[in-house]
Design a protein around this nucleic acid. Sequence first.
DNA 1: ACCATTTGACCAAG
DNA 2: CTTGGTCAAATGGT
Length: 341
Amino acid sequence: MASSGGGRSPATAVLDDLVDVRDRVGMLQTVLHESSPRATAEAGELVEGMMAKLSSSMSVLGTGDGVIASSSGAGRESGGRRERTGAAASGPHRRSSPRRRMKSPLIKTVTTTMLTDGKSWRKYGQKQINDSTRSYYRCTHKPDQGCQAKRHVQESESNPAEYTIDYYGQHTCRDPSTFPSLIAQGAAAAAPPPDFANLISFAPINGSNRGFTASTSTSAFAHHLMKEAADHHSMLFSRFSNHSSSPPAQEGVSSGSPSPACHGKFMQYAGGQFINVTGLSTSPLTVGSAPAEYWPVVGVAGVDMDAGAAMDSFASPPSSPGFLSGSLEGSFGNNVCHWRI
DNA sequence: ACCATTTGACCAAG
DNA sequence: CTTGGTCAAATGGT
């Protein structure tokens, strides 16, 4: 399934299962939230308790031992790369402070053709591993919000068009692009957004993002939506407006208008599942994250990508997605994707 | 000019 | 030592 195959340690297997269970609980949350408010209240508490336990267990497992060290050795390449055009020798960039190795637990591994996952990532390194390139990303919001989430993107050896993405650490940031989905959910549920919700919506990424690089998610369209939302939810909006200046200047979307194919549907990602949100007719597939306490649930479970892309590595497909409906398609950079919910 | 990416060097862990 | 992960100056796009 989702995680990098190979021989998994028992701890890894347990962690995987926990992740799966957590995703399902997330689904349950969503279902509950859309049903009667009263039953929801009680069940919601139960679910939250379960989620808390799961998360703590996972973090213990994740940090307790090495957890999942995918890769197979035999890497090489250290010095050889091409010459730098006149830089380098300028001086020894030495740091007095010792560097720490990453200790964040591996949250999830996915194989996908899409490098966009709705979060804002900043690339901070690249390595050649076994004839494939691995890129290192950290959350764009690390400087301003201290978000510790990271991901490693590595070309699939079997299929260069695919990438294996390892997610480390939890997102603790609040991406402003999340806001529209919060509004949407608020409208759909006629209730304030639950603080446990994981909301993701996808924005078409084009323009500046060339194939390999990470994407930013705050589209101009999202800003437009936020502005619109502000008219109706000024108080809520003011809560988030603080963040509107923090994301990097570069936006994933250069023009204000997303691909036409992306209009008309608005998706939420809640607790591991995409759900179709009605009542927002013109929203793009904006991407965001919410209180991302349980982020990267990347699996985009059950999502069916196009291009014959084998998504078999994606996390547990929804076993009973009865509450899901609809479909949509959009494009991410060079990738045309189809989702079937 | 600003900011994200590139890329060799540096560093820790095995 | 080898390998993988991170740093940070340089680079290039906007």
